[in-house]
Computed example of a mutant assay.
Amino acid sequence: MNNDELYDLCAQFLHAYQERDLDTLRQIFTRSEELTALGTHQDLHFLGWSAFEASLVRQFSAIEDTDIQITEFRSHVFAGGAAACVYATTDYRGRVSGQDVHLPGLRLTLTLEHHNHAWRIVQAHWSIPADGSLLDPRPPTLQPETTANAPVSHSSGTVPTQKTQQPTPATHDEFPGGARAAFAVYRKMAAAVTERLNQGTFDFASDIAPHADEQFIEIADEDPLDLTQVKETFTPVIDAISAGASFSWSVQLEHARDLTSDITLLITNARVSLTPSEGQPDTKRYRITNLLTRNASDAWVFLHQHRTEIPDE
């Protein structure tokens, strides 16, 4: 599959979504219970096709007159064509629950595997570079989507919801071997960075860069970031610590899937906190799609991260 084919598949997915075409979506997604789908607020997090399909039905009942255009597109094919990843920024216009919505920075990651001689989407992560969701573009005050048959309230109406299967925490022994090894690298890196930042000895070139592929892309608040731009995001943290603040970073593994022997997909939950010498801590929690690969030195390195901020508990 080349870049044009990946673009066409991404466009097919978006067109099927805007046309509320479930039949096409059933053809391009894997319909296994290993599918993972992350949406535009904390409760849109699904494991398995049946849970994701139920959410699509609910969303399709609320949206109308939708137009989604791809404004930026990148793709990578891995392992000789056994797996691939798409990163896209889109412009979303439509009406949701009777309300006009324009989301110019809607971000999308798709992970694909070759299934039965055809490409299938095995993971999707759709997010907005600000608080909100497709079903409520205001800062989220949504009720959990897990509430059976309860309506979700909006300023312009209600949308009937269906009970959906949220992922349940799993022990690390339940995850495949490659994913466990990759996550161990992730957790060790987070602990080391936390320690070195607080000690004032942090060095991006030695503490972060060796853990990332040269083509690494991070999708976070706005535009996709390369490794040089990621480095710049540490500057305000370093400055705050120099002024007396303390830093903490913890990660948890929610779901994992080995795409090939050398490519693994991790869905993680991260908590990052910066506590000033006086005052309350600034704590943020993220749900993150991570793709890692085993490099020539047999070390696991990050290919991609896509994170969505979720309200702290």
Rank of each mutant, 00 (worst) to 15 (best):
D4F: 03
D8Q: 15
A11F: 07
L14Q: 11
H15A: 12
L25C: 06
R26S: 11
Q27Y: 01
T36I: 15
A37T: 06
H41N: 14
D43R: 02
G48N: 07
R58M: 15
I63F: 09
D67W: 07
I68K: 05
E72F: 04
S75W: 04
F78A: 03
A79C: 10
G80P: 10
V86E: 05
V86K: 04
L103S: 11
G105L: 12
W119Q: 14
W119G: 10
R120L: 10
H125N: 11
I128N: 06
A130M: 12
D131H: 10
S133T: 07
D136E: 09
D136P: 00
R138T: 02
T146L: 06
P151S: 03
P151G: 02
V152Y: 02
H154D: 01
S155W: 03
K163N: 03
Q166M: 11
Q166I: 09
T171C: 04
T171E: 08
T171P: 00
H172T: 10
D173I: 07
F175H: 14
A181F: 00
Y186K: 12
R196Y: 01
N198F: 06
D203A: 14
D203L: 10
S206L: 05
P210E: 08
P210V: 08
A212K: 14
F216G: 05
A220H: 11
A220R: 09
L227I: 15
V237Y: 06
D239V: 13
A256P: 05
L259T: 08
I267E: 07
T268D: 01
A270N: 13
T275F: 01
G279I: 03
R285E: 14
Y286W: 13
I288C: 12
T293E: 13
T293D: 04
S297P: 00
D298I: 02
W300A: 09
V301Q: 09
